[in-house]
């Protein structure tokens, strides 16, 4: 040894500190954005759930009042129920349709590229644009669907004006818009599957449906894992199409959590209430994604 152990320790520490600093320099821009636009808002949210006022007058500590208000507010409950029911309709539907289209795209020998572009077009539209498009298509007076209904001898259906139909209709519009995205996602997963496995399964005499259930679905587990979690996060934030189409109506049948949060700030100016509702949404999504992670974990 030419250097003492203490000297070695000191130099090693300095060396490691330098690599750590480099790493944080690479993480820096993201960590700053993360702190300012995610960490601070989340902390602010938590603090606000225990306070009132703040827009005009000084904020005041009110303990659990906001939480009590939120839980006892019937519209808050309705908004949560609407959001969950909407997600429960939209997510499985879009997944099944997208899976069928992805399987079909994976099966055809040519012509895939233009079909993929066509299927993706709805995904490229902002939700409000999709919403407006369907306002025409579904219009009770001059919409093409109701034209067909009349031609068949039925009474025109007011899709967005009916309390039982409005939420499913919005779900349907979001399915139309989301199908392209999930089709591409599943197709990407399918094309990455090892072909040899399928040849082997076929030689073993496994039929198409059996192959799909025993081979494709399990192999796509990582894709599904991402899809389920991402879809949950996105769909529980339902806002754009409700805002553009129904503004929560008719009779609050389409009020979503995000819409109610938006209203509580920009219509009622009740920050404490909106913050509590927001925090509830954060917790819901975290718990749900946690649960999904647990359910979809790799059991092997």
């Amino acid at each position: 040894m030419t250097l003492s152990p203490e000297e070695h320790r000191r130099l090693a520490k300095r060396y490691r500190r330098r690599t750590t600093l480099t790493a944080y320099a690479f993480l820096g821009p993201n960590l700053v954005a993360f702190a300012v636009f995610l960490l601070i808002p989340v902390v602010w949210l938590l603090v606000s759930t225990f306070r009132t006022g703040g827009v005009l007058g000084p904020a005041e500590f009110v303990g659990l009042d906001n939480w009590r208000d939120t839980f006892s507010d019937p519209l808050a409950r309705t908004s949560i129920r609407n959001t969950v029911v909407y997600s429960a309709m939209a997510i499985p539907t879009v997944f099944i349709i997208a899976m069928i289209l992805a399987l079909a795209l994976n099966a055809i020998p040519r012509g895939g590229a233009p079909i993929r572009v066509a299927l993706y077009l709805p995904t490229l539209q902002p939700a409000v644009v999709a919403a407006f498009i369907f306002t025409f298509v579904l219009h009770p007076d001059f919409g093409v669907i109701n034209y067909a209904v009349r031609w068949l001898g039925g009474d025109p259906i007011n899709f967005l004006g009916d309390t039982t139909l409005a939420l499913p209709t919005i779900a349907g519009i979001e399915v139309w818009r989301g199908t392209g995205f999930w089709t591409m996602m599943f197709l990407a997963g399918l094309t990455a599957l090892p072909g040899e496995l399928y040849h082997a399964a076929e030689l073993d005499g496994a039929g198409a449906i059996r192959r799909f259930i025993r081979l494709t679905l399990p192999l796509l587990r990582p894709t599904f894992y991402f899809a389920v979690i991402f879809a949950t996060i996105v769909n529980l934030q339902l806002f754009d199409s409700v805002f553009a189409l129904t503004d929560g109506g008719p009779v609050n049948s389409t009020v979503s959590v995000s819409l109610y949060i938006y209203r509580s700030l920009f219509l009622f100016g009740d920050i404490g209430f909106g913050a509590t509702l927001s925090f509830l949404l954060v917790i819901t999504v975290l718990l749900l994604t946690g649960l999904q992670t647990y359910l979809l974990r790799d059991r092997k």
């Binding site: 040894m1 030419t2 250097l3 070695h8 130099l11 090693a12 300095r14 060396y15």
Partner: peptide, 16 residues
């Protein structure tokens, strides 16, 4: 990283 001891290249300690 070298856990223990010293490495010299061209007469110079290079551990760090």
């Amino acid at each position: 990283e070298v856990s223990h001891g010293e490495i010299h290249v061209a007469g110079e300690l290079v551990n760090y």
